[in-house]
């Protein structure tokens, strides 16, 4: 077992340094899928979360509870629901999206969206408690207050987006079901790890896992440093 772990690190190192083309294609697809899902979830989720944070309507409490619950939606359930929707025999079958990266983006968007909405709601609600009177005083009410709240909450919201990125990049259940783990098309880092594990090549699987963690680490480090620098300038 110890030799497995040693050789896993060697494999990870070889994959990253050797720029193995298959490995790079898998990494590129993983990033494309997860980043696309993140952008879609952010575009929809930030304004939605902010509106949920500052408006009051009947059923708001229930909505918040549902959104918070969906943060824990098991990826495999999200994948299964989407599989049934996108299947040729399902209501959205006409798009022919099943077993394509598009389906994987949709699945991961579904996973990230509740995180973005829930954390944005919390952040903007707190911020609104502090800013509300001033913003209303200068005429920024309702949707007009949203850009200010999102911008001033940007550090907390960056963390929310990173949490979403982490959830999406780490999950395997949803992309495996709707993507099909097709070599060269829908094979991501996590589905490759699952495949290599099932082939018994534990060193390669772990090597890929180490590479994935490394990648996530790099992205978080960049986001953290950028936040630090920005925070120094605007408090």
């Amino acid at each position: 077992m110890a030799t497995d772990i040693v050789s896993a690190f060697a494999t990870a190192f070889g994959l990253i340094v050797g720029l193995d083309p298959t490995f790079l294609a898998v990494v590129a697809l993983s990033l494309k899928v997860t980043l696309s899902a993140l952008v879609l979830a952010a575009v929809a989720g930030l304004p939605l979360g902010a509106l949920l944070g500052i408006t009051r309507f009947p059923g708001r409490g229930a909505t918040i509870v549902v959104v918070n619950t969906l943060m824990g939606l098991p990826p495999v359930v999200a994948g299964l629901v989407l599989y049934l929707l996108l299947s040729r025999s399902g209501p959205l079958g006409g798009f022919g999206l099943l077993f394509t990266p598009g389906a994987m983006i949709a699945a991961q968007t579904l996973l990230i969206l509740p995180i973005v909405v829930a954390l944005t709601r919390q952040t903007t609600e707190d911020l609104w408690g502090e800013y509300g009177e001033h913003l209303r005083s200068i005429g920024l009410t309702g949707a007009r207050a949203v850009p200010t709240l999102l911008w001033d909450g940007r550090f907390a919201l960056t963390t929310a987006l990173l949490a979403g990125f982490g959830r999406a990049s780490a999950e395997v259940g949803a992309v495996l079901i709707v993507g099909g783990n097709i070599a060269g098309h829908t094979r991501t880092m996590t589905t490759t790890i699952a495949l290599e594990t099932s082939k018994g090549d534990l060193a390669l699987a772990l090597g890929l896992g180490i590479a994935l963690v490394g990648l996530t680490l790099a992205i978080n480090a960049v986001a953290f440093s950028a936040g630090r620098i920005a925070a120094r300038h605007v408090g």
């Binding site: 502090e130 800013y131 009177e133 005083s137 200068i138 200010t148 001033d152 605007v234 408090g235």
Partner: peptide
């Protein structure tokens, strides 16, 4: 904006 308000605890945006 013909009338404005200043609060007891100044509301400062997280900006310059």
């Amino acid at each position: 904006r013909r009338h404005a308000m200043v609060f007891q605890k100044p509301v400062m945006l997280r900006r310059s």
